[in-house]
Structure formats: structure tokens, C-alpha cells
């Protein structure tokens, strides 16, 4: 059997979601953002809510997400996406509203906004990409940077005396009564990706069941910031990030 016999429309089993635009993503080779974008696109497509979903992309590597997912988007100031999403969600209760934030955006400058949006139990989904670094600006330390981890602003490894401790923001948010579903996922293997997609699907469905804010952290890699190949980055993530940021559902009321 020739390859050309296999490659036929009727034999198609997997293709890029039509919700992903044709724009080439600016992300570095192997970056987890691209995988999470594809998952969100697939979830929105399967739920058939492209015309009722509004995304909020704050400053960070993923601010340009609005060039890749074919839905309506609001670009937000650094750290303020949960507030922008609150404004949209409160005035469009029928819409699916989600933010797509990095660790610097959510756990550093935007800590107050994410805390209070979750505390109010806004009916939104917060997608939080934790790669322990500021990617867009060239690899500086983030609140989730691990002790001893080398970054552009911790050239000798993060020192708790100087920079404090890595922040487990997701566990903090799970303490707030306003959050309903809080989970930590990863996208480094096919199995992890399938789990992450189910988690995202559940998060989106939850916002219509008045169960409070859905929060999906995705522990991801930043091969350029970590100065590793994508494969090495995945291994380093498993060995170093997962012990500090264990995967799995943290809260599910």
C-alpha cells in the first residue's frame, strides 16, 4: 500500500482545528503555549461556542494569542486580565470568558486581580501557563521560579534570601471559596495533553453551572528562557517543576 493511498480525506483522523488561524505562531520551537492554544481551540470547537467565547490576553509571550485563535479577544494590560474578564463576563453573562495568562502576569503584577476575581467567584476560566520565567522579556525570574534556578535576573540561581520563595499560587487560589474547579496540568506527553484537554473542557463547562471560577494551571516549558532543547526542557520540567508543582485536581466542588 502506497502512502498516497492512505493520505485521503476519508482516512483523516487528526487535523489542526479550524479555530486556529493560519498565522505562524511566534512562539519558540517546542513552546508549550502552542499546545495549549490547540487544546483551547479544540475545546471551543467541540462545544460549538466560537460565537459566544471572548478571550482576554494580557501582556506576555501569549499576548499575541489573539492572532492564533479565531474568536473575539480583548488585549489586557499586564496583570489585569482577570479584571478585564470580570468587566466582560458581568456584562455578557451568556458568554464564555477566559483569560490566558503567564506566571509573571498572574502571580506577580496581577496577584490582586486574580485573587479577587477568584474570590468573587467570577464565572470565567483562568488559564495559567506556569513556565517559571518571564519569556517575552528575555528570561527573567518569575514568582514561580524554583530555588536555585538560573534566569537572567538570578544568574547564580534563585536565592531565597534575595528573591523569596517560589509561589504556589494555584494552591492559594484553591483556598478561596469563589473557586470551584482548580487543577494543575501539563502538556509534555500525549497522555498529559489528553488530561489537560479534559480539564479545560470541564473548566469551560463549569462556568455555566454557577460553580464559581475555574482555574487551570498548565506547567509548561520555556526552552529558550531555560536555555535547553525542547526535549531537555521537558525532562527538566518533570524532574524539577513537578515535585514543586504536583499535577492533578486540587479542588473540584
Amino acid at each position: 500500500m502506497e502512502i498516497t493511498d492512505i493520505i485521503r480525506q476519508e482516512n483523516l483522523v487528526y487535523a489542526k482545528s479550524p479555530l486556529l488561524t493560519d498565522n505562524i505562531m511566534h512562539y519558540c520551537p517546542g513552546c508549550s503555549h502552542g499546545v495549549v492554544h490547540a487544546l483551547i481551540a479544540a475545546v471551543i470547537e467541540e462545544m460549538g461556542v466560537q460565537d459566544r467565547t471572548i478571550g482576554v490576553s494580557p501582556v506576555g509571550c501569549s499576548v499575541l494569542a489573539y492572532n492564533y485563535l479565531d474568536i473575539d479577544w480583548a488585549e489586557a494590560a499586564h496583570g489585569r486580565a482577570p479584571a478585564v474578564a470580570t468587566g466582560i463576563s458581568r456584562l455578557h453573562p451568556d458568554k464564555y470568558v477566559f483569560t490566558y495568562q503567564g506566571d509573571g502576569d498572574l502571580a506577580s503584577i496581577g496577584t490582586a486581580e486574580v485573587m479577587h476575581a477568584c474570590n468573587r467567584g467570577e464565572n470565567i476560566v483562568i488559564v495559567f501557563i506556569n513556565n517559571a520565567i518571564y519569556g517575552m522579556t528575555g528570561g527573567q525570574m518569575a514568582p514561580t521560579t524554583l530555588v536555585g534556578q538560573v534566569t537572567a535576573t538570578t544568574p547564580y540561581g534563585r536565592d531565597v534570601k534575595l528573591n523569596g520563595f517560589p509561589m504556589k499560587i494555584t494552591e492559594l487560589l484553591a483556598q478561596l471559596d469563589g473557586t470551584g474547579y482548580v487543577t494543575r496540568q501539563a502538556v509534555h506527553t500525549p497522555l498529559a495533553i489528553r488530561k489537560a484537554k479534559n480539564a479545560l473542557r470541564k473548566a469551560f463547562e463549569n462556568t455555566k453551572k454557577d460553580k464559581g471560577t475555574s482555574f487551570v494551571e498548565v506547567v509548561g516549558t520555556c526552552s529558550s528562557g531555560w536555555k535547553m532543547t525542547p526535549a531537555e526542557a521537558n525532562r527538566w520540567m518533570v524532574e524539577n517543576m513537578f515535585p514543586k508543582y504536583p499535577l492533578g485536581d486540587i479542588k473540584d466542588i
Binding site: 500500500m1 493511498d5 492512505i6 493520505i7 485521503r8 482516512n11 483523516l12 483522523v13 487528526y14 487535523a15 489542526k16 482545528s17 486556529l20 505562524i24 505562531m25 512562539y27 520551537p29 517546542g30 513552546c31 508549550s32 503555549h33 502552542g34 499546545v35 490547540a38 502538556v187 509534555h188 506527553t189 500525549p190 495533553i193 489528553r194
Partner: peptide
């Protein structure tokens, strides 16, 4: 085998997968 694992992990969604029973 057309299992699509490659397409799943691809950050840039550049892989399309086909499968047929022989």
C-alpha cells in the same frame, strides 16, 4: 499506525494524520 500522538504534541499544529484498515 496513525495514532496521532505526534500531532497532539506538536506546538505549532503542523501535522495532519491519516489512518486506514488494511
Amino acid at each position: 499506525t496513525g495514532c496521532a500522538n505526534c500531532a497532539l504534541v506538536c506546538p505549532d499544529s503542523v501535522i495532519t494524520v491519516y489512518k486506514v484498515n488494511v
